[in-house]
């Protein structure tokens, strides 16, 4: 690794830290704009909407909410980096523990769905680009436009209605058969826990319940991946090296799927992050419909209860996840494609 790559990585890392800080400061400022005095601040941070005045005053005093703003912002940032997002007043547990419990469940099916949609999307995108302006291309285009413009709840509701209720192939709601006993929580991810404990019925039930949400995520992000792959493929197929490959006598199909597609999939790493951001947002609605108790379910419960610590905590954690993913993707992209580093 030469010094230029290292400088590139360091610059990206600084950008990432900046991004996170800007976001935290923004949220902090916003809280202070809507809650200008210590009492209303205590109302937000404690997460208790209808407490007594003495309770709020005591809370403000113990948590330093009457301190000057510059002191408060430092404690706020330090608390966030310590993982201290406050106590969820409804479940009476630290928000960070709850996020640690719910986030892996979501990542489990979101990541699976993304992997599926990337494999499908890459090939469909390449297929459409190879048949540009032919009926096949238009069909693919129509399909991805439809999945892209579709509200997530419509997609999830149709899947649930047709596959679970009409055909009775898969369970419609819940994360696992509620009559089964959960294996001990060792590895955070339920599937890994079940594997660790060798609890096969539990594992099968988990996978059984996971298929529909995964399918919904895959269909949702299929549109993005296909669209991006198609346009990158069209660019690659205009290049000289691709023409040369054809002229050398390499069969067209081989040229498309192994030469062009391989080059077109370098930006794949950036797609994954884009897609991750998109899918996490989609997961909120999908989990609500399938009663899948992940981070989305937690967010929706917090919305119903006006539970500020939970909302702020999840937002920052999701932001952190995506910023870190972005950083990794940027660095990978720079390593894979040296032209990017020269910006």
């Amino acid at each position: 690794m030469d010094s230029r790559t290292i400088a590139f990585i360091i610059r990206r890392a600084i950008y990432a830290v900046f991004t996170l800080l800007i976001l935290i400061v923004f949220i902090f400022v916003l809280i202070h704009v809507i809650a200008p005095n210590p009492i209303s601040l205590a109302k937000i941070y404690s997460g208790v909407p209808h407490g007594s005045l003495t309770f709020y005053a005591a809370y403000a005093k113990t948590h330093g909410l009457d301190a000057p703003v510059y002191v408060q912002i430092f404690t706020y940032i330090i608390n966030i980096f310590k993982g201290n997002f406050g106590i969820d007043p409804i479940k009476d547990q630290p928000v960070i523990t709850l996020i640690g419990k719910y986030l892996p469940r979501t990542l489990e099916f979101v990541l699976t769905g993304i992997v599926i949609s990337i494999i499908l999307g890459l090939y469909t995108g390449a297929y459409a680009a190879a048949r540009r302006r032919k009926p096949a291309d238009n069909t693919v285009k129509g399909f991805y436009l439809a999945t892209w413009s579709m509200p997530t709840f419509l997609l999830a509701a149709v899947l649930q209605l047709v596959i679970a209720y009409d055909l009775r192939l898969l369970p419609a709601i819940n994360m696992v058969d509620p009559t089964l006993r959960a294996p001990p929580d060792v590895l955070a991810f339920p599937i890994l826990n079940a594997l660790w404990a060798r609890d096969w019925p539990y594992l099968i039930s988990l996978i059984h319940h996971m298929i529909l949400p995964t399918l919904a995520i895959a269909l949702l992000s299929f549109g993005i991946i296909t669209r991006l792959t198609r346009s990158t493929m069209l660019d690659v197929m205009e290049t000289d090296y691709f023409r040369l490959t054809l002229m050398k006598g390499v069969p067209r199909n081989k040229a498309i799927y192994s030469v062009a597609l391989r080059n077109a999939s370098i930006p794949l790493v950036t797609y994954i992050v884009l897609d991750l951001a998109f899918s996490v947002a989609g997961a909120v609605v999908i989990e609500e419909i399938f009663s899948y108790h992940g981070i989305g379910y937690y967010i929706v419960q917090a919305i119903y209860n006006l539970d500020y610590p939970a909302i702020l905590g999840t937002t920052i954690i999701i932001a952190l996840t995506i910023i870190v993913a972005n950083l990794i993707a940027d660095i990978l992209y720079g390593v894979l494609d040296p032209r990017v580093r020269l910006e």
């Binding site: 991004t19 800007i22 976001l23 909120v284 967010i299 909302i311 932001a319 995506i322």
Partner: peptide
């Protein structure tokens, strides 16, 4: 950058 790197829906919520 800070705004665009996040899922819009989560922030809007």
């Amino acid at each position: 950058d800070a705004f665009l790197s996040l899922p819009a829906l989560v922030l809007v919520i």
